[in-house]
Each structure stands twice: as C-alpha cells, then as structure tokens.
Design a protein around this nucleic acid. Structure first.
Lengths: 353, 353
DNA sequence: CTGAAAGCGCTAACAC
DNA sequence: GTGTTAGCGCTTTCAG
C-alpha cells in the first residue's frame, strides 16, 4: 500500500498557472475571480483531489471551528445519548469535535485536560460531565485563565456560568405526585449516589412532594444505590426491611428499578397493586420489563443539541465583544411516561382513600 | 467576562530574554540548554500559563497525534462502549480524537467526511461503523486516495484491509451448542436486521451448530428483528406461530431477548423449562431480567482499545516505510455467560435424551 | 550553548 | 482580476 501526500495550495496554483492567492479566492468562494480562471482552478482541484488544510486555516484565522467535548462514563446510556445529540448538532452547525473522556466522574485535576484542549485551539468547550463530589472545584481557579467560552451540563446554579440541566427536582416531584395521585401513601425512594448533585435533587423533589401532601418522609424511607441494577437490588431489599409499610417506590433510575421489579416478582409482591414503581431516565427497554415501567423521561439527545447551540452562540458573542456577559441557565423539563408499574387495577382503586 | 489570549512562544521568549528557539528546546526537553536558562524559561512558562500550540506543531511536524474516529448509532450500547475503549486507549497512547458520527448506519456517501478528516491532518482513522448493506462500497473507490492508514471494525474479511471484528459466527454456534447441551432440540432464532453482516454471521453460526448436531434448521425456524425490544416482541410472536414445536431460542441481542422473556411470561411459558433462551451482547441489566438471561458476551471496550493499538501501530509503520504491507485481521472471541434462562431445572434434565 | 533564517499551508492586506 | 508580501505559532536547519 502506498500513501500519497495530500496536495497543497501551492501545487494547485502551479498546476493551474496562477498564484496561491487566486486559488485561495476560489476555494473560499470569493468574487473577483474571472469565470474561466475559476473554472480552470476547480478542474485542477478536482483532478488533484485537493482539500484545504483545516489546520493552516485555523492558525491564520485564529478560529478552528472545533469544539472541545469533555464527557465521562460513555458506557452508560445518558452520557452517550448526550454525545449523540452533540455530534449531530455540531455537524449541522459546521463544527468539528475534539473528544475527551474523564477516567472517573469525580476527576478533580483537569488543568492538563483544559490545556490540551486550548492547545488545539478549540473555539469553545462543552463540559458534559455531571456534577459529582468536588469535581467542580476547579472552576474558581481555572476559569479565569480560560481563553474561550465554556458551557456546563448537569450542575447546580453557579453565578457567571452558562449551565444546561434537567430539572431533576421537578422530576422527583412529578414521579412522587403521580404515585400520590394513584392513591399510594407510603412512598419510599431509592436514590442514586448522594455525592451526585442529580441524586440529591431527585431526592429533594420526592421529599417535597410528600410534604406538600401532608406526609412526612423519614430518613429510613430511602436507601442509596449507585445507579447499577445490582446496587438497586441491595438498596431495595434494605428499604423493604426498614420501611415495611411501603406501598410504592420512586427509583432514581430505570436500571435500579429493573431489579426492584425482579425482586418484587420473586417475593410475590404484585406490581402495581401491592407496590407502585416509577423509575427515571426513560430507557426504551423499560417498556419490556416484567411489569412495564412508568418513568420520568429525560431527553439526553436534546441536552446535547442545546449544549452545542449555546456554545456556538457564546463563541459568536465573544468574537463580537471582547468583554461580554453571556452566562445563562437553561433548564430542560422531564416528562412523565405512565406504564403499568404505577397504575393500580380497579379493584385497588376502590380501596384507595 | 474577559477572555485573555493565550501567550505565544514569542512572548515567552521575550519575557525570558532569549530566542524562540531556546524556548522551543526547553518545551521539547532537548539537551543543550544551560541549566539556568532552562530554569528561567520554565518559570516564565509557568507564570504566563504558556502552552505550545498543537496546531502549529502539527503543521510543521506533519504529524498531529490525532485520530479520526467515525462511529454510528452512539445511542446504542455497543458503539458507545467501543468509543469508551477508544477514548481510554488513545489517551494512554498520547493521541487526541476527532469524532464524527454518521447519521445512519448505511450512509454511503462518505467522501466529504473522509476529506474533512484528512483536512484536519489526522494521522489515522478508526472506522467504527458496523457493516450494513452497501456501506462498504466506497472502499474500493476512495481507499487508494487516502493518504493515511485506516482500520475497520466489525466487517467481513477483505483483502488489503486491517479489520478487527468479533467472531459472530462462533458466538452463534456457542449459544446454540449450549442450548443443545442443555437438551433442547427445537431451537429457533431471532435474527438482527439481515442487511447487517453481524446478523448474518450469527445466524450462520446458529445454523451450523444445528446441522452439526444432525438437526435441520428450516427457514421458518427464524424470524427477523431490528435489534429493538419492540421488534423482538413482534419477531418472537411470529416465530411462536410458525414454529410451535420450538423449545428454545437464540436471540441475536439482549434487548430483543428481553421481550422474548416478557411475552413468554405473559403467555405462561416457563423459561427455561418450556423455553430456553440465550441472548447476545452482554448488557449488565440482563442479569436482572424476570429470568436472568444467558448471553454471549462481546467485549466492546476491548474492541475499542484494540482498534487504537492497531491504528497507532499502522501509523508508526507507515512512517518508517512509505510502502508497506501491514493489513491484518484480528478476531475477538465472544464468551458464553450462563444464567437461568438456558438451564433447565433437574426434573427436566431427567426427561432430556 | 544559543540565535538567525526559512518554511509548514494558508489568508489578510495591500499593490498593480 | 490577479499577484506580492507578510505572518499565524511553531520547529528545523545551520551558523556562530
């Protein structure tokens, strides 16, 4: 196999018998080129398979049309669906993507990564890593040195930052209020890892909904999982133990809800009659669980698209004015998807208060 | 918010009172720099927060240490787990990633994409798109013009190409042979979309295993799904209809197997006693299905890592000799993971031949 | 040990 | 309309 070098603008110019500047004008579709010159150059370009170097252009134009994307946990559904949205929206808007994945969600030392990104002259950064533990502590130190705009996904409000998040609090409320409406009164909760901001928000929503209904959620009405199905099994068994009156449970994601359904099935606990279940995330498979799962759907694809729109917007703004106040917070709403796991059959409806 | 320009090597040189070449020597860790000069420059670099431009370096060195990654279907588990492996291995080997996602698996017009990648001076390309329909037809036309190495994931053997695939045929065989060993004799198959090479391979493995056992698989012993759980439901119901003697089924992925389990449960068909089920892929959730699912595990992460190793290897080779024969085919083996869905309880064991 | 000059591939600003 | 000059930020010669 032979690899032939890509042709340069110089070679095209020579082959066409013009200067590089004229070739440059043609490939940038500028006027002020004679029609037959343009024609000739196009032919040479076609023949040589010439493609202008994005690198050289980025250097001279001080603009790369490239976005840095930092993600974590690509093997999970949420992050990869978000990335899915990012790739499509960036393609649509004419930007390329430089991808980095953190080895852990709570990676704290991100300075080298940031430097690597700016070394590549990315025009902006999408920080698509959920807020976990102290993994936002670098912001105060590093952000001032950052020569380009950045948008953050999935984190709490922070003055001066552009942030796009789901309303996890609302999601928790919606799930719980739905269960209340169905007549359940003893609603437990299996949380995600409590060092995750999203977990805390979902739990707060659950709590608030119960309190609004005049009920008083106790500490022993919830247990903590780590998002995985196996952790959900453990957390559910523990919850059954410490909260025997429980007649419904809001589970912080669908994976953990899956094992709630399995354990209930094996224990002959009927869902939804004896136990109502609502999950969160909206994985398509949830419709095919033993009992189809009601869930709070998060549109991760949309999150990705929105992130690109915002960062491109910020980039454009920052090029107009060297100083600018552009930070804003966008909250995406979750949606309740009702399936069997939370809707009691009629004989139970009659019994409910 | 203010954005401060990144410093250049020139500014560092001026601040340190030396020439840019000397700074260059320091940042490239070359000898032949006086210790105190080096020290001084390091201090200035630290103070200014200087980071050399990867773009300028790529231009002059004719080498970007960047890999082009082309993927498709990131919202699915397989592709994103592969990407997960790619990000980690490339980070480890000192390469950055330029990511592109095809809008559809069977996108045929990839010339613009290829040009875009080479325009960014990527050193090599990982084509992480499964072979579907005619989506490899561009190879013969475009590959000769490609100035850099490329490795393909998940496609059939093709002379002159470097390819890394799972042994899908073997996977199909293993699943089916396992069911045979368990005493099942009427083994059906739900395939993936038959325009996928992987689907055809898995089916061929199923067929071969049955024939080796002296059984004769018929056309009506299999139906076709599209990987989704909902398609699996349809395909399974159809299969039940046209193959009523069926006592086991090999399902081409875990998602579809999920609905096989659900439909069976609702129809009071006991798994594994009345119906043995084996899936494929190895999604972690499969352990928590109503009946825990036996499955053929594919290590997609490893696939990604291997892809990076291979492409970097090819890049290195291609820089040593302008001509080279480096193509090779790597086949990764699947693994059988046995859970309840395919292991009959003892009272049935006794009955089996 | 250090610096000056040239140039990677391209475009901005100016000439003609 | 088209060419010339300069330079984006860096490294590679080659002098000294």
């Amino acid at each position: 196999m032979y690899f032939t070098k890509r042709p340069t603008i110089k070679e095209v110019a020579q082959a066409a018998g013009v200067s590089t500047q004229t070739v440059s004008r043609v490939i940038n579709d500028r006027p002020d080129v004679a029609e037959d010159t343009r024609e000739k150059i196009h032919q040479v370009i076609e023949k040589l398979g010439y493609q202008p170097s994005a690198l050289a252009r980025s250097l001279i134009q001080q603009r790369s049309y490239t976005l840095g994307v930092v993600t974590a946990g690509l093997k999970f559904n949420g992050p990869s669906r978000t990335l899915n949205g990012i790739t499509f929206q960036s393609e649509k808007m004419g930007y390329s993507l430089l991808l980095k994945e953190l080895p852990r969600f709570d990676t704290e030392d991100i300075k080298p990564l940031l430097q690597n990104l700016t070394a590549h002259h990315v025009d902006g950064i999408i920080w698509a890593v959920p807020q976990v533990g102290d993994n936002r502590s670098w912001i105060d130190e590093e952000l001032n040195d950052l020569p380009i705009p950045i948008v953050f996904l999935t984190m709490e409000n922070h003055p001066g930052l552009t942030i796009i998040s789901f309303d996890n609090y609302l999601g928790g409320r919606m799930a719980t209020e739905h269960l209340l409406q169905q007549g359940y009164r003893h609603i437990g909760h299996i949380t995600g890892p409590m060092d995750w901001w999203e977990s805390r928000q979902r739990k707060a929503g659950w709590k608030a909904a119960l309190e609004s209904a005049g009920l008083s959620p106790q500490d022993h009405h919830s247990t903590e999982g780590n998002w995985s199905s196996s952790s959900g099994e453990v957390a559910f068994k523990q919850l059954l133990n410490q909260y025997p009156e429980m007649d419904a449970v809001f589970v912080a994601n669908d994976q953990m809800a899956l094992s709630v359904i399995q354990v209930s099935d094996r224990g002959n606990v009927n869902i939804p009659d004896r136990l109502g279940v609502v999950g969160m995330d909206g994985m398509p498979e949830a419709a095919y669980f033993k009992t189809p799962l009601s869930t709070i759907v998060l549109d991760q694809y949309l999150l990705g698209c929105t992130a690109v729109e915002e960062i491109v917007h910020s980039i454009e703004k920052s090029r107009e004015h060297s100083e600018h106040e552009n930070q804003r917070t966008i909250i995406l709403s979750p949606e309740l998807l009702i399936r069997e796991s939370s809707v009691r059959s009629s004989r139970f409806d009659i019994e409910s208060p």
